[in-house]
Design a protein around this nucleic acid. Sequence first.
DNA 1: TGATTCACTATACAAACTGTCCAGCAAAAT
DNA 2: ATTTTGCTGGACAGTTTGTATAGTGAATCA
Lengths: 169, 169
Amino acid sequence: MVVDQQSEHSDQPVDELDARLLLLLTDEPRLGVLECSRRLGVARGTVQARLDRLVERAVLTGFPPALDLGAMGYGLTAFAVVEIAQGRRAEVCEGLAAIPEVCEVHATTGQGDLFMRIVARSNADLQRVVDHVVDVPHVRRLSTSIALSTPVPPRVRPLLERVKGRPPK
Amino acid sequence: MVVDQQSEHSDQPVDELDARLLLLLTDEPRLGVLECSRRLGVARGTVQARLDRLVERAVLTGFPPALDLGAMGYGLTAFAVVEIAQGRRAEVCEGLAAIPEVCEVHATTGQGDLFMRIVARSNADLQRVVDHVVDVPHVRRLSTSIALSTPVPPRVRPLLERVKGRPPK
DNA sequence: TGATTCACTATACAAACTGTCCAGCAAAAT
DNA sequence: ATTTTGCTGGACAGTTTGTATAGTGAATCA
């Protein structure tokens, strides 16, 4: 059977309408289902069904509040590559997870074993956090880079826009 | 029942009630104001006022939809350190921003000039994306690490819980 | 100290939204 | 040819929101 890409929702997790809906919600997340249906020019039930399906497919996992850590006092973001003792990843990750300032940890290929993002209130505070990290058992080496600016903030928009097929509003 | 916590709200961007509210919304983002007030045991107007203030202070910047890129077909996440020609950061960032798979770019201290997160559909696709990146004018060198797993997914919770626990000095 | 301000509580009411139905239709699948 | 699937348009009750108002205690001002 040849894949006919027009209405393949089975292997196409997000079609154009989905993308338009998600873009709309990206721009104005607090819109209700009704308002979305109006803006998209479809029936309310359709929007409701689309959202349900997106959640089912685990494409849309929720609408978490977006917090500006800077405004909360954590003005400093840093990235760190962690080298650890062989075979101790689970333990180390547990230790790292216990540090509130550790906002994200990934295991990666390449130099270093773990990669993480941490925040701090100031340079002095970063020092303290880094010390904490280094104190986690089996952490061998830590190489830290401070984020000076963020030219491209976290985004998904372009990927959605590509699905949608049409450029921004 | 009167809360006498307001001795320091000028320099304390987020007090305990704010933190509890944000935690609640973190766990169940689609809760309405009314439901929040019930769960927190305060009046609806209070929740409304708190939310308004958090938005005013730019602590709470919105409720963007959380998308699972993996479920959307982008199963691969990679981090890359970019070395660029001196003084060309703006141009390079512009070029990077034009690549949809580039989800985030930071300028950092330390080895490399830019640090970014990119996604791809597969290894072959990653190759394509990387080629795109390298083709951006003034990009000198690109060092890529693939994320194998994410032991600690992006989170803010622990920072909020700390505020909730005890109002920091 | 008395007056004022501020945050919160407690209500109230109209307008709007949500969760759920259901029937009709057209295109795609079997 | 028949069934399935997704969308439309409409309807209903119940709930939530936006917005106001009045009252209370605590902190701040003059």
